[in-house]
Computed example of a mutant assay.
Amino acid sequence: MKKITLLLLLISTFCFAQIPAGYYNTATGTGYTLKTQLKNRITNGHVDQGYGSLWNLYTNTAFRDTNYENDNSLLDIYSENPTGPDPYNYFSTSQQCGSYSNEGDCYNREHIVPQAFFDNVAIDPMKNDPFHVAPVDGKVNGLRDNYPYGRVNSPTNTTANGSKLGPNYNSGYSAGYSNTVFEPLDEFKGDIARSIFYFVTRYEDSMVSFYNNTTVISKNMFDGTANNALSPTFLKILITWHNQDPVSPKEIARNNAIYNYQGNRNPYIDHPEYVCQIWSSVCAALSTDNFELEETTSIYPNPSNDGRINISTTAELNQISVLTINGQVIQKITNPNLIDNTIEISNLPKGFYFVLLEANGQNITKKIIIN
């Protein structure tokens, strides 16, 4: 989504109802001033619970699958299949790694911002912070290694749920980098972006020393400054993912659980609009990039009375995704074949949906209603 859409506004309102009264009263600025205000807010009250206690936190319902199969398995962003059966599941704490050689052997603790980026300066509390330390399959954790997150068109490795490792797609919103990156599923890209925005905000004062004291490849995500923090290519990637994959109920539940656990919150889950209030020039540039696609695309009939819509565009689409209001992908078409610049999507159940269209680094989201 190129702007704060109805979905983001709805979610912002829902999130606000979960926030302790007055929690963000000091967040009154814009730009880097706002970022520092948020840093002070989420540092105050943060009580480090240690690395070992994460295992117990991961048994909390907020870290379990209550959105997809609803089977109370561990919600692992590297193995969850949002549109069908998972390739494997973890239920018990006894399935922690351990040695592993294959997917499904065991799960461990994945640092979304790799530990190797900061451990030459300090370990705690960054190592132990569940806002960027997630329970994931051990094999895939090792495959991701210390690589940045990015877009992969030609994967060298593909995981059981479709996450990809390979050279970054050096075009569109991800232009400017061509080395190896790891691409998660669309369903979890916003989660990862907001985790990284949290990290560069909560640990703002340390970002320069982290950057200057490491040579790990994930360093390329950052620019060596405290304020902007993120390098141009990866800031565009993360803002695009943040907009394409809005805050979902699973993130809200996780945010509340972590607040109860360690006393602070992720402000970008509570207030998604903070991202573009801080990095406003990049958000504006991304919006301009999407103008041409917006102007040449239409969806009809809308509302639809028979579960079918037509997408008409002169753009060469790379992907079409249909998402529920909760952000769950129910249909995805890669490299769609348009006939006379039109493609039909059918078998849509009654409901309210968003259609995400991607073309050469541009993306727009359209609202549709199926009666």
Rank of each mutant, 00 (worst) to 15 (best):
P232D: 10
D245E: 11
V216E: 15
N256R: 14
D223H: 06
V216C: 08
T233L: 11
S218D: 12
E251T: 08
I252L: 11
N264H: 10
L230M: 06
A257H: 03
D270G: 07
N260I: 00
N227D: 09
N256W: 01
N256C: 05
S248F: 02
V216A: 04
D245L: 06
G263A: 13
I217P: 12
K236V: 00
D245K: 05
I237A: 13
N256K: 08
T225C: 03
P246H: 01
I237V: 14
T225V: 09
F234N: 12
L238G: 03
S231K: 04
N227R: 11
A253Q: 04
N260P: 03
N260G: 15
Y261N: 02
D270L: 09
S231N: 14
A253I: 01
G224K: 06
N256D: 12
K219S: 14
Q262W: 12
S218P: 06
K250N: 13
N220A: 14
T233E: 09
N256H: 02
L230E: 00
T233S: 04
K219Y: 03
T240E: 12
R254Q: 03
N227H: 02
N260Q: 15
N228V: 13
L235R: 04
R265P: 12
R254M: 13
Y268P: 00
I239R: 06
N260S: 15
P246L: 12
P267H: 02
N220W: 09
L235M: 07
T240H: 14
S248D: 10
G224M: 06
A257K: 04
P249W: 13
T240C: 07
S248N: 01
N260M: 06
P267I: 00
